[in-house]
Protein backbone atom coordinates (compact mmCIF):
# COMPACT_ATOMS: atom_id res chain seq x y z
CA UNK A 1 0.00 0.00 0.00
CA UNK A 2 1.24 3.43 -0.97
CA UNK A 3 1.52 6.29 1.44
CA UNK A 4 1.08 9.96 0.90
CA UNK A 5 -1.29 12.87 1.09
CA UNK A 6 -2.99 14.00 -2.13
CA UNK A 7 -4.88 17.28 -2.58
CA UNK A 8 -7.58 17.06 -5.25
CA UNK A 9 -8.94 20.37 -6.60
CA UNK A 10 -11.92 20.33 -9.00
CA UNK A 11 -15.23 22.17 -9.20
CA UNK A 12 -16.92 18.95 -10.35
CA UNK A 13 -17.93 17.18 -7.15
CA UNK A 14 -18.25 13.83 -8.97
CA UNK A 15 -14.62 14.01 -10.11
CA UNK A 16 -13.42 14.72 -6.57
CA UNK A 17 -15.54 11.83 -5.37
CA UNK A 18 -14.28 9.25 -7.86
CA UNK A 19 -10.61 10.26 -7.52
CA UNK A 20 -10.92 10.21 -3.74
CA UNK A 21 -12.31 6.64 -3.76
CA UNK A 22 -9.64 5.45 -6.20
CA UNK A 23 -6.77 6.93 -4.17
CA UNK A 24 -8.15 5.89 -0.76
CA UNK A 25 -8.63 2.35 -2.05
CA UNK A 26 -4.92 2.43 -2.84
CA UNK A 27 -3.75 3.72 0.50
CA UNK A 28 -3.55 7.47 -0.02
CA UNK A 29 -4.90 10.12 2.26
CA UNK A 30 -7.04 12.53 0.24
CA UNK A 31 -8.01 16.12 0.96
CA UNK A 32 -10.12 18.13 -1.50
CA UNK A 33 -11.15 21.62 -2.56
CA UNK A 34 -13.83 22.84 -4.98
CA UNK A 35 -12.02 25.92 -6.16
CA UNK A 36 -8.52 27.32 -6.58
CA UNK A 37 -8.66 29.69 -3.60
CA UNK A 38 -9.59 26.91 -1.17
CA UNK A 39 -7.03 24.60 -2.77
CA UNK A 40 -4.22 27.09 -2.22
CA UNK A 41 -5.20 27.62 1.43
CA UNK A 42 -5.39 23.86 1.96
CA UNK A 43 -2.02 23.31 0.25
CA UNK A 44 -0.37 25.86 2.56
CA UNK A 45 -1.99 24.38 5.66
CA UNK A 46 -1.72 20.65 4.90
CA UNK A 47 1.46 20.51 2.73
CA UNK A 48 0.29 17.56 0.59
CA UNK A 49 2.80 15.31 -1.18
CA UNK A 50 1.15 15.92 -4.55
CA UNK A 51 -1.69 18.04 -5.97
CA UNK A 52 -4.18 16.97 -8.64
CA UNK A 53 -5.97 20.04 -10.00
CA UNK A 54 -8.49 20.80 -12.69
CA UNK A 55 -7.53 23.44 -15.27
CA UNK A 56 -10.80 25.35 -15.22
CA UNK A 57 -12.15 26.31 -11.83
CA UNK A 58 -14.16 29.32 -10.65
CA UNK A 59 -12.37 32.10 -8.84
CA UNK A 60 -8.85 30.89 -9.57
CA UNK A 61 -7.93 28.68 -12.53
CA UNK A 62 -5.64 25.68 -12.22
CA UNK A 63 -2.79 27.62 -13.85
CA UNK A 64 -3.21 30.55 -11.47
CA UNK A 65 -3.21 28.10 -8.57
CA UNK A 66 0.07 26.53 -9.71
CA UNK A 67 1.63 29.96 -10.26
CA UNK A 68 0.70 30.91 -6.68
CA UNK A 69 1.99 27.60 -5.34
CA UNK A 70 5.35 28.16 -7.06
CA UNK A 71 5.68 31.63 -5.54
CA UNK A 72 5.08 30.35 -2.01
CA UNK A 73 8.03 29.01 -0.03
CA UNK A 74 5.97 26.25 1.66
CA UNK A 75 4.34 24.95 -1.51
CA UNK A 76 6.82 25.74 -4.31
CA UNK A 77 8.17 22.18 -4.58
CA UNK A 78 4.91 20.26 -4.45
CA UNK A 79 4.46 18.25 -7.69
CA UNK A 80 1.27 19.00 -9.63
CA UNK A 81 -0.81 16.93 -12.05
CA UNK A 82 -3.28 18.98 -14.09
CA UNK A 83 -6.55 17.67 -15.53
CA UNK A 84 -7.92 19.54 -18.50
CA UNK A 85 -11.00 19.28 -20.68
CA UNK A 86 -9.69 21.92 -23.09
CA UNK A 87 -7.43 20.78 -25.88
CA UNK A 88 -4.05 22.51 -25.96
CA UNK A 89 -5.05 24.65 -22.97
CA UNK A 90 -1.55 24.58 -21.51
CA UNK A 91 1.43 25.29 -23.72
CA UNK A 92 4.63 23.26 -23.35
CA UNK A 93 6.51 26.37 -22.29
CA UNK A 94 3.96 27.10 -19.56
CA UNK A 95 4.06 23.51 -18.36
CA UNK A 96 7.84 23.63 -18.14
CA UNK A 97 7.95 27.04 -16.53
CA UNK A 98 5.39 26.12 -13.85
CA UNK A 99 6.94 22.66 -13.39
CA UNK A 100 3.65 20.85 -13.98
CA UNK A 101 4.64 17.20 -13.75
CA UNK A 102 1.87 15.86 -15.97
CA UNK A 103 -1.15 16.97 -17.98
CA UNK A 104 -4.06 14.56 -18.22
CA UNK A 105 -6.90 15.16 -20.66
CA UNK A 106 -10.50 14.73 -19.57
CA UNK A 107 -12.06 12.20 -19.82
CA UNK A 108 -9.21 10.58 -17.90
CA UNK A 109 -8.68 7.12 -16.48
CA UNK A 110 -8.52 6.92 -12.66
CA UNK A 111 -6.08 4.02 -13.15
CA UNK A 112 -3.80 6.20 -15.26
CA UNK A 113 -4.02 9.00 -12.72
CA UNK A 114 -3.05 6.61 -9.92
CA UNK A 115 -0.08 5.36 -11.98
CA UNK A 116 1.10 8.92 -12.61
CA UNK A 117 0.87 9.80 -8.92
CA UNK A 118 2.83 6.67 -7.97
CA UNK A 119 5.54 7.39 -10.59
CA UNK A 120 5.99 11.01 -9.57
CA UNK A 121 6.14 10.23 -5.85
CA UNK A 122 8.55 7.34 -6.48
CA UNK A 123 10.86 9.57 -8.54
CA UNK A 124 10.86 12.18 -5.79
CA UNK A 125 11.67 9.53 -3.20
CA UNK A 126 14.58 8.28 -5.31
CA UNK A 127 15.89 11.84 -5.80
CA UNK A 128 15.65 12.53 -2.05
CA UNK A 129 17.51 9.32 -1.16
CA UNK A 130 20.43 10.11 -3.47
Amino acid sequence: MAEGKVLVADDEIHIIHVVTIKLRNNGYEVISAEDGVKAFALACAEKPDIIVTDYQMPGMTGLELVRKLRQNETTKNIPVIMLTARGFAVEDKEQEELEISELLSKPFSPKELLRSIEDILYQRQVTRNK
Binding site: H14, I15, K22, R86, K106, P107, P110
Partner: peptide, 22 residues
Protein backbone atom coordinates in the same frame (compact mmCIF):
# COMPACT_ATOMS: atom_id res chain seq x y z
CA UNK B 1 -15.62 20.34 -26.10
CA UNK B 2 -15.12 21.45 -22.51
CA UNK B 3 -18.82 21.22 -21.69
CA UNK B 4 -19.14 17.81 -23.34
CA UNK B 5 -16.00 16.39 -21.82
CA UNK B 6 -16.96 17.35 -18.27
CA UNK B 7 -19.93 14.94 -17.90
CA UNK B 8 -18.12 12.45 -20.15
CA UNK B 9 -15.18 12.48 -17.73
CA UNK B 10 -17.47 11.45 -14.87
CA UNK B 11 -19.21 8.75 -16.93
CA UNK B 12 -15.87 7.35 -18.08
CA UNK B 13 -14.21 7.42 -14.64
CA UNK B 14 -17.16 5.88 -12.78
CA UNK B 15 -17.59 3.17 -15.42
CA UNK B 16 -13.91 2.26 -15.16
CA UNK B 17 -14.18 2.07 -11.39
CA UNK B 18 -17.16 -0.28 -11.66
CA UNK B 19 -15.38 -2.47 -14.21
CA UNK B 20 -12.25 -2.60 -12.03
CA UNK B 21 -14.31 -3.56 -8.97
CA UNK B 22 -13.40 -0.42 -7.05
Amino acid sequence: SHELKTPLASISAYSEMLVDGE
